[in-house]
Simulated assay, not measured.
Amino acid sequence: MEFQLPSLLVLIPILLGLISSLNTLLWFLNWAWTNFLRPPKDLKSCYGSWALVTGAADGIGRAISFELANRGLNLVLLDCDAPKLETTAKEILHGHDVEVRTLVSDLCVDREDELVRKVREVIEGLDVGVVINNAGTTHRDPLFFDEVDDRLVESIVRVNVEAATWVTKAVVPGMLERKRGVVVNIGSGSASFLPSFPLFAVYSATKASQEWAYKYFDA
């Protein structure tokens, strides 16, 4: 059977459309399975008995810390707010049969070598298999790039990119030695979904940097 040229011109776009639709459907099914349907992992057996969470004293980091404690993981909690950090640690210890260590560190201030030293000291001898880089900062009000104070730009980059990188650098050698572990960066829709976020350009750029850097690390 021979196809005439007009028939081929119609058939090719239809096939390409079907392939594109199938690819989108497979992506959606994989996304739904990964985020909502697959059974939870036993984090202790898969990765290790300890987890390190940055920005753990409040907000998302605090909630993650409680959830990890619910899963039976011992915790190393890092934050710059010592009183809140101590409160969070006490509340976790009160309601869960886990161990908790705390590390007070201002990620805007601590230099790279100091941060790595602090983290390695507190995790020495621990089976840290989960790292949650949650700490993050930005400016409160929408500002164009040229309006953001230089020191604020520096602090956003230091916390969102540099600190996450150095915390990971401090922990990864142990993971490689044990041949297991996972690093999770708390991202932002401003870097993943929105086509542009101009009034928070520095924040969005740092979150995008985290996302792409760890894709390459995983490779």
Rank of each mutant, 00 (worst) to 15 (best):
M1N: 15
Q4Y: 07
Q4K: 13
L5N: 15
V10Y: 09
N23W: 15
W27G: 07
L29V: 14
W33P: 06
F36S: 08
F36G: 03
S49D: 11
S49C: 04
G59E: 02
I60K: 05
I64Y: 09
F66Q: 09
E67F: 08
R71F: 06
G72R: 00
N74E: 09
L77Q: 03
L77M: 07
L78W: 00
D79K: 01
P83D: 14
P83H: 10
I92E: 00
I92P: 02
H94I: 08
H96L: 01
E99M: 09
V100M: 00
R101H: 09
V104T: 14
S105P: 00
E112T: 15
E112V: 13
L115N: 00
V116P: 00
E121C: 04
V122M: 08
V130T: 06
I132V: 14
N133H: 03
N134A: 10
G136T: 08
T138N: 10
P142V: 03
F144L: 12
F144C: 10
F145M: 10
N160K: 03
A163G: 08
A170L: 00
P173M: 04
E177K: 12
V184E: 07
S188C: 10
F193S: 11
F193I: 12
F200Q: 07
Y203W: 15
A208L: 11
A208K: 06
A213W: 13
K215H: 15
F217D: 06
